[in-house]
Amino acid sequence: MPELPEVETTRRGIAPHIEQRRVKALRVRQPKLRWPVPAQLPQWIEGDCIQSVERRAKYLLLRFSRGTLILHLGMSGSLRIQPCNTEPGKHDHVDLELDSGQLLRLTDPRRFGAVLWQENGTVHPLLASLGPEPLDEAFDAAYLQRCCKGRRTAIKALIMNAEIVVGVGNIYANEALFRAGIDPRRAAGRIAAARLEKLVAAIKSVLAAAIEQGGTTLKDFVGGDGKPGYFKQALDVYGRGGEPCHQCGEPLSEIRLGQRSTVFCRQCQR
């Protein structure tokens, strides 16, 4: 599933092509995505300009004069900029045709993505309870310490909870915990403040590095320009169970934690 760096990479890739562009037509070939595409969507956005392209957690927000188009890439979705005369493929479900002669195309083989609408002055339920962005100043050691206080929840599960902090998906949780030297199974409430400060710094540095390298391509992800992400080459633990630790050389352990693959070093992470 595309995580925060992949979604941010997509945002940066498509924004220069679609901001301040008028939508000439919206074509929905398959309205049955994770949630139904609103039937009234064409009348809400056709003829209007895309004022800005923003990101909140793993959602892309296309701002219009009367509301916001919310896009989610699901498990295997991608957004591409293509000429308007490009023939659609089997899994090309939604097109925004622009006055530039280009279109923004949503491709989603598994149909777990979403195309939704938020009226101005309202907050969509999917966005209402989200925690702070991990790269914002609001996400700091003091905040994380408050969230962890008294909790028995494994620290990996806690930092993957979008109500605590958004966008720290499985890949980046594994990597940040390794950089911080923290065992992913450790109870959140039993981690010292100094170690939580190191974890916050690790989350920020891992996500920033992944964004700069275009995200992580493991199977399906490509950015808005159709190119894969290259952070996979920089992974220390994720997907490397049984291989030597980059720090101590001992084999990395791989377990299931919260139904997610979790890789860590028993020597380096405490």
Results as ranks from 00 to 15, higher is better:
residue 167 G to C: 11
residue 179 R to Y: 12
residue 153 T to V: 14
residue 176 A to K: 07
residue 189 G to K: 10
residue 203 I to W: 06
residue 185 R to G: 04
residue 146 R to D: 14
residue 166 V to C: 12
residue 171 I to F: 01
residue 169 G to R: 03
residue 186 R to M: 12
residue 157 A to R: 10
residue 163 E to V: 13
residue 192 A to S: 12
residue 202 A to W: 01
residue 163 E to W: 13
residue 150 G to N: 12
residue 147 C to I: 03
residue 163 E to A: 15
residue 204 K to W: 14
residue 196 L to C: 11
residue 201 A to F: 12
residue 170 N to M: 00
residue 151 R to G: 10
residue 156 K to H: 06
residue 191 I to V: 13
residue 173 A to R: 01
residue 204 K to E: 07
residue 160 M to L: 07
residue 149 K to A: 13
residue 151 R to M: 13
residue 203 I to Y: 03
residue 184 P to G: 02
residue 165 V to Q: 04
residue 185 R to I: 06
residue 178 F to A: 03
residue 161 N to T: 11
residue 164 I to Q: 04
residue 190 R to K: 13
residue 190 R to G: 14
residue 177 L to E: 02
residue 182 I to R: 07
residue 169 G to F: 05
residue 205 S to Y: 08
residue 151 R to A: 08
residue 150 G to H: 11
residue 149 K to H: 15
residue 163 E to S: 15
residue 194 A to P: 08
residue 202 A to N: 09
residue 185 R to V: 04
residue 147 C to M: 12
residue 198 K to M: 14
residue 205 S to K: 12
residue 179 R to L: 14
residue 144 L to P: 03
residue 156 K to D: 00
residue 143 Y to C: 07
residue 166 V to M: 05
residue 147 C to L: 11
residue 149 K to S: 14
residue 151 R to P: 06
residue 181 G to Y: 04
residue 153 T to N: 10
residue 149 K to N: 13
residue 170 N to F: 06
residue 154 A to F: 11
residue 201 A to H: 13
residue 172 Y to P: 04
residue 188 A to I: 00
residue 158 L to N: 01
residue 154 A to H: 07
residue 189 G to E: 13
residue 204 K to M: 10
residue 179 R to C: 12
residue 191 I to G: 08
residue 187 A to Q: 11
residue 150 G to A: 11
residue 148 C to E: 07
residue 156 K to V: 05
residue 153 T to Y: 09
residue 183 D to S: 13
residue 171 I to Y: 04
residue 195 R to E: 13
residue 167 G to S: 01
residue 143 Y to W: 07
residue 159 I to G: 06
residue 197 E to T: 15
residue 155 I to P: 01
residue 204 K to A: 04
residue 168 V to F: 08
residue 176 A to V: 02
residue 145 Q to W: 10
residue 154 A to S: 09
residue 200 V to I: 08
residue 182 I to M: 04
residue 147 C to Y: 05
residue 180 A to R: 02
residue 156 K to P: 03
residue 152 R to V: 12
residue 154 A to N: 10
residue 152 R to P: 14
residue 157 A to M: 12
residue 193 A to R: 13
residue 146 R to V: 10
residue 205 S to G: 15
residue 192 A to R: 15
residue 181 G to L: 01
residue 158 L to W: 07
residue 169 G to V: 03
residue 148 C to G: 05
residue 190 R to P: 14
residue 204 K to R: 10
residue 154 A to R: 08
residue 171 I to P: 02
residue 200 V to S: 05
residue 150 G to V: 08
residue 200 V to P: 06
residue 148 C to K: 00
residue 158 L to Q: 04
residue 186 R to V: 10
residue 190 R to M: 15
residue 169 G to N: 01
residue 195 R to Q: 14
residue 176 A to T: 03
residue 180 A to T: 05
residue 194 A to Y: 09
residue 177 L to C: 07
residue 167 G to N: 06
residue 201 A to E: 15
residue 161 N to L: 13
residue 158 L to F: 06
residue 168 V to M: 00
residue 143 Y to P: 08
residue 162 A to W: 10
residue 170 N to K: 05
residue 177 L to Y: 01
residue 197 E to G: 12
residue 174 N to H: 02
residue 143 Y to Q: 09
residue 176 A to L: 05
residue 178 F to G: 03
residue 186 R to C: 10
residue 177 L to G: 00
residue 152 R to N: 12
residue 155 I to M: 08
residue 178 F to D: 00
residue 185 R to P: 03
residue 176 A to N: 00
residue 202 A to F: 06
residue 160 M to R: 10
residue 166 V to N: 04
residue 172 Y to T: 04
residue 196 L to Q: 09
residue 163 E to D: 15
residue 202 A to T: 09
residue 203 I to M: 08
